[in-house]
């Protein structure tokens, strides 16, 4: 994109600056729109599973429901509890939202269509998602209220636990791909399954890792059945209890942006990202981002499906699952994967 701006008569530095800004807008604005629509989709899917209609009043088929909600919270008054730590109380939703958007910088939407094509792309995603917990912890503490504080404690422990196993699962994928670059990982999946399927999922050593990754991504984004941070029967609304209007909306948007990111990571790491599912020439005529979005939506549908189906976990079960089941299993698979690759690909 920098070249385009140079051809418009800018010098190189300004062109790079303008291209970065344009790239950021090109990702962020559709992302926010996608978040609005995905919230609508979530409610519609949930409604269909519960034999309800879901939102159907605002706009055709209720399509504008999320925008109406957005407008509503925008017009509300921001209430700050008098005992709250004011600066941190307002900082927390901003952190959550910013961090949720920052991770999108390294996501490749098509061959070469990525804002920052860095070598450590996957590590960057991991680093940014590990920052997400601060928004929750700070909001819980700054609210100066019991339920948000409990929720913050739960969130901190939960996110750290599952990040560990996510890290190990990613190591398995990186071992197969031989790179941390997300585009490189997608390219490595071309024709991986029987020379024809563009995905890691048919690999018997990586399929169990995908199952673990999918469950961990549910826990990492605090979606049901792991939504203990906002378990309404025990914690009111969790860390968001004291928040209102836009500060609440920022949490909301950040949460869904994170869910979308995790769905997209599932698609990129195990299902070939922007590659068509089968390595067959006519399928490449469809633009890569359509494949990526289709795969992402399939995962989002699974997220909503699980939300509507599975009852909530107990907290000790959640911790046990993370530390006693996922962690040893992913460690075992790292050893098996690296041993197999050492014997077959690199030689002893």
């Amino acid at each position: 994109m920098t070249e385009t701006f140079i051809s418009w008569g800018m010098d190189a530095d300004w062109a790079f600056f303008a291209a970065s800004i344009a790239g950021i807008l090109l990702i962020t604005l559709p992302l926010l729109l996608a978040v609005a629509m995905i919230i609508y989709a979530d409610r519609k899917i949930m409604g269909a599973i519960n034999l309800r209609r879901g939102p159907n009043v605002v706009g055709p088929f209720g399509l504008l429901q999320s925008f109406a909600d957005g407008l509503k919270v925008f017009l509300q008054e921001t209430i700050i509890p008098s005992a709250a730590n004011k600066g941190l109380f307002l900082l927390a939703p901003i952190i959550t939202f910013t961090v949720a958007l920052a991770a999108w910088a390294v996501i490749p939407f098509n061959s070469g269509a990525v804002l920052a094509d860095i070598n450590v792309g996957l590590l960057y995603v991991l680093a940014i998602s590990s920052l997400g917990v601060y928004g929750v912890v700070i909001s819980g503490w700054a609210s100066n209220s019991k339920y948000p504080f409990y929720s913050a404690m739960r969130a901190a422990a939960q996110m750290i636990s599952y990040e560990v196993s996510i890290g190990f699962i990613l190591v398995c994928v990186v071992l197969w791909a031989g790179t941390f670059n997300l585009n490189g990982i997608i390219e490595a999946q071309r024709g991986h399954g029987f020379g024809i399927v563009n995905a890691y999922i048919l690999n018997p050593l990586l399929f169990p890792m995908w199952v673990l990754f999918f469950i961990s991504s549910l826990a990492e984004t605090a979606r049901a059945p792991f939504d203990l941070t906002e378990a309404e029967s025990e914690l009111v609304a969790g860390y968001q209890t004291e928040y209102s209007s836009m500060s609440f909306a920022l949490f909301w948007l950040g949460e869904y942006a994170n869910i979308l990111l995790m769905c997209m990571l599932n698609a990129i790491l195990f299902f070939g990202g922007w590659l068509p599912p089968i390595d067959w020439e006519p399928l490449y005529l469809v633009p890569g981002w359509i494949w990526l979005f289709a795969k992402t939506f399939v995962f989002f549908f699974m997220f909503s499906w699980i939300w509507a189906t599975v009852p909530r976990y107990r907290y000790d079960q959640l911790m046990r699952l993370g530390w006693k089941v996922f962690l040893p299993m992913s460690l075992l698979f790292i050893i098996i994967t690296s041993g197999y690759l050492m014997l077959t690909r690199y030689g002893v």
């Binding site: 601060y134 912890v137 422990a157």
Partner: peptide, 14 residues
Amino acid sequence: VIVYVGAVAVLFLF
């Protein structure tokens, strides 16, 4: 970022 900010400092804060 992953080790210090993401894990160690969270425990500190905790």
